[in-house]
Amino acid sequence: MKKIFLFSLLLISSHVFADSGSRLIASGGITGFEGTAGGGITPWAFIGGYTSKEEISYSANVQYLSLNDYTLKTAGLGISLFDRVELSFQRQRLDISSGLTSNVFALLTDGAITNANSATIEQDIIGAKVKIFGDGVFTQNDWLPQLAIGAQYKKNRDFDSSLSLPDGSVPLPGIGVPLLLGAKNDSGTDIYLSATKLWLGYPSGYNLLANLTARYTRANVFGLLGFGSEGDDSAKLEWEGSLAVLISPTTAIGTEFRTQTNRLGGLAEEDTVVDAFIAYFPNKSISITAAYVDLGNLPLQEGSSGFYLTVSGNF
């Protein structure tokens, strides 16, 4: 249904300017792992792509994050309308190695079962962002940032997908990994407010970008481990930030953080996520970003860090 909505928007928009857009290169950020434009792990107030008030552009992205026994692959599509509205659809797929699922069973059964199949958790995210105030790039004569509010509706598709054993049996029918770890719901909506500002020529003649995002969320590990818990089903305020410097017309380096609620605790304890990235914008049609991401604890993997690679296209 939502995909049909996106595609019909594509059709009705064919009469306005639809190329990658006219805004300055790199000012659209990249597409984050939740499908929203900004940094890799946090939305910015900038609308994705390079649309001006008169333009529409589309985006597509593929992303890969390797975290030892976990691998997160995501892909998605987006549309940016008139430098005002951004809509996106992202599918995330978290692969969990059989080593980890085997450990889960070993723990649950006191070692009676020590061998399980690998598992997958998929999540869909439908995002909408609206610029509400300001021009974070061109109002260089005052300090006011650009502001945007947004929502990410997230639906975990494997909330109740049971883990299976090599012989095909399902010891815990109807209980997926999120449920097993104590999550209450299979869907939730994050609401965020982002403030973003670019300083042209500072520091040292380079361009500095700073972003702060406040997110109101029930998600456990971004929703990959479901939403809420039995004891705590209220949304919490979390903070995210990015600091980036454009070191050349086509290259940005920077760092980000993102706090998490840690509602589930125990095995699924959540830490603050941090990353350092380098993004390359050879032209307005494509960007390639490499990052090192540290998520801290994931279930049964205390230090979860690894390389993140994403390619976004605008057209």
């Binding site: 061109f138 109002t139 260089q140 004569n141 042209l200 020529g201 040292s204 003649g205 380079y206 017309p249």
Partner: peptide, 18 residues
């Protein structure tokens, strides 16, 4: 001009947008 000089000039020209 260097990239840095270019950015510092753009900083001054940018507000003209509005």
């Amino acid at each position: 001009l260097t990239y840095q000089q270019e950015n510092r000039i753009l900083n001054k020209l940018a507000p003209i947008k509005y």
